[in-house]
Nucleic acid binder design. Structure first.
Length: 586
DNA sequence: GCCGTTTTCGGCCCGACTGTTTTCAGTCG
């Protein structure tokens, strides 16, 4: 089983235990374990052969390790099967409805016999939900709205789409003179590939007019909550946006808090406790160690001496930590690294010296060869590779060997006119269903770089798909595996294949892997990139631009690379062209 | 269920808002 599948099972167990009213810390143990497993880049299946113990992972003890082993050996977990004898599987959907948690799920199940979202909807429409203790007319209404919404938006929004929603909203709020500072926090600031909602954070001398303007934003479809310092709305696009307004002395602490991740924050607070400090969105405070928690502290979150809060830097410093870049705040070891001053110098946009995947009008691009060159030169690149499609992608006007050679003539002419940038001949060569390449070896030898990728037969069984890609990676002329998993965010899942096996083959055959920067691809994703880095495989960050305008999408690739802790040395196209070609040479 | 610079038991992150309450549990982030 893949780590993601194991994590899903453990997380489901946590949900089930919670509905059954189990010890909340036991529930948390399953959630923690699920998170650890999901973030682990080495497949757990390979631990044994690498001589490693599962229990060396934090949050994985004896019981958890045994369950994971059972999952890996049998593909099932007897404990889970037994629990499904008692608790209906479909009940788990209820917990994820807005306004419904484990306690209410349990009540709905036990007292109304509701076992699925459909049944809950019926019960709510019949007015039976409102009659329960602890529920009322409003809860019932909220549940019905929640169900409708749950059906509509089960998926998170790709970061690129969120950018289009967020930028105008930020501009709209910033017009208000009372807004001294405004920033988007949350997973958006961490530059996760998708966002669930948007967390806005503002400093304002007077919070009321800011909240008022926020609620009056023309795109707002519904107001979910509105207090003096917190408000929550849903936009017409279905995107939920939360606004928090904080005073200047708390801004840094609030920014840390609302940037998250939740797990990163928990790490920070645990560390604070060890130092006799208390961290909240209001700041870092000294706790009185003589009393476990005074009544005063409970009543007032700002009690005690404030030692930090205005800036993020001072909050981290109060905990003896270096400032952590938002992209790293996922509890993947960044807190320890910040404590030992060993955070990496992450790659930045300015480190890139070239872009190694793009298309022109020769296949499905919108701009000519020369326009693409000028676009790259304008970005200050030292080199770029033009990678039009190969012949089997007929719908894109893919090039056969004859047209490829004709293209080279134009490339040579254009390149001769533009000594300011090095023009690399390349092609995005299709990996055919049997793993052979769409362009013959003779033509491939005329290219500076050979890029290969899958564009068809996504539905092949995992074993065949893996062998198909392995065959291409092992081809002696192949240099880069482009968008390796083939996913399109929100539209197409990755085709099923053994990613780890392919990565190890890339290592063995000196093939670089692409980080496709297009915001709807972002392929490889962060966790796979971490694995690639650990294996020592060079990464190439490219736009796959189909026009000059799309060359700017490279920033999404940089952001994703930063989430994988990539430094300039890990990324091939931060190097001068001679070094790139030398490193790719077989 | 996990964990250990308070180490094999007794802890395990923090606060706002809502709805249904009449003092607070549940949910959310």
């Amino acid at each position: 089983m893949t780590n993601a599948q194991i994590a899903a099972v453990l997380s489901k167990l946590g949900d089930l235990l919670e509905i059954q009213g189990a010890n909340p810390f036991r529930v948390r143990a399953y959630r923690n374990a699920a998170r650890t497993v999901e973030a682990e880049t080495t497949p757990l299946e390979r631990f044994a052969e690498e001589g490693r113990e599962l229990t060396e992972l934090s949050g994985i003890g004896k019981d958890m390790a045994q369950s994971i082993q059972e999952l890996n050996e049998t593909g099932k977990l007897s404990m889970l099967e037994e629990m499904f004898e008692i608790v209906p599987r479909t009940l788990l959907d209820l917990v994820h409805l807005p306004g419904v948690g484990p306690k209410k799920t349990k009540k709905l199940w036990e007292e109304l016999g509701v076992t699925s979202v459909d049944e809950l909807e019926k019960a709510a429409n019949a007015g039976r939900v409102a009659e329960l203790d602890g529920f009322g007319a409003k809860s019932q209404e909220k549940i019905l709205t929640g169900i409708a919404e749950w059906r509509q938006h089960q998926e998170r929004m790709p970061l690129g789409d969120a950018d289009h929603q967020v930028e105008p909203l930020v501009a709209y709020l910033s017009e208000l003179p009372q807004v001294e500072r405004l920033e988007v926090a949350g997973s958006y600031r961490r530059r996760r590939e998708t966002v669930g909602d948007i967390d806005l954070l503002a400093i304002a001398t007077e919070p009321e007019p800011v909240m008022e303007r926020f609620l009056a934003y023309p795109e707002v479809e519904r107001v979910d909550m509105s207090g003096t310092t917190r408000g929550s709305v849903v936009l017409g696009s279905g995107l939920q946006v939360d606004l928090r307004i904080v005073p200047p002395e708390s801004y840094g602490a609030a920014l840390v808090y609302f940037t998250g991740s939740k797990e990163h924050n928990i790490k920070l607070r645990q560390r604070a406790l060890q130092k006799g400090l208390r961290v909240s969105e209001y700041g870092v405070f000294e706790s009185d160690p003589s009393e476990e928690k005074s009544a005063e502290e409970k009543a007032d979150p700002k009690a005690g001496k404030r030692v930090a809060g205005a800036t993020e830097e001072e909050v981290y410093k109060a905990l003896d930590l270096d400032w952590v870049p938002p992209e790293l705040r996922e509890d993947r070891g960044e807190v320890d690294a910040a404590a030992s001053h060993s955070l990496p110098r992450l790659i930045e946009l300015g480190d890139l010296k070239g872009d190694l995947q793009m298309h022109s009008t020769w296949s499905d691009g919108k701009n000519s060869v020369e326009e693409m060159l000028e676009g790259c030169a304008a970005r200050g690149y030292e080199y770029f590779a033009l990678t039009d499609h190969s012949q089997s992608l007929a719908m894109t006007g893919g090039l056969d060997e004859k047209r490829l050679r004709e293209q080279w003539k134009e490339i040579d002419e254009v390149a001769a006119r533009h000594p300011e940038i090095r023009f690399l001949k390349s092609q995005e060569v299709d990996i055919l269903a049997d793993g052979t390449l769409d362009t013959d070896d003779e033509a491939l030898k005329g290219l500076d770089i050979v890029l290969v990728s899958v564009h068809s037969r996504f539905e092949l069984p995992e074993k065949e798909q893996t062998e198909r890609i392995l065959k291409a990676v092992c081809h002696p002329l192949v240099n880069i595996l482009a968008h390796p998993t083939g996913r399109i965010l929100g539209r197409r899942k990755p085709y099923p294949f053994d990613v780890d096996k392919v990565l190890r083959a890339c290592k063995d055959h000196n093939v670089a892997v692409e980080l496709n920067a297009h915001p709807e691809r972002l392929d490889l994703k962060d966790t796979h990139l971490i694995r690639a880095r650990e294996l020592g495989i060079p990464v190439v960050i490219s736009t796959d631009a189909h026009g000059v305008k799309e060359l700017g999408l490279i920033r999404y690739g940089i952001e994703q690379a930063r989430r994988a802790w990539l430094q300039p040395k890990h990324v091939l196209n931060t190097r001068p062209v001679d070094e790139v070609l030398k490193m790719l040479a077989k």
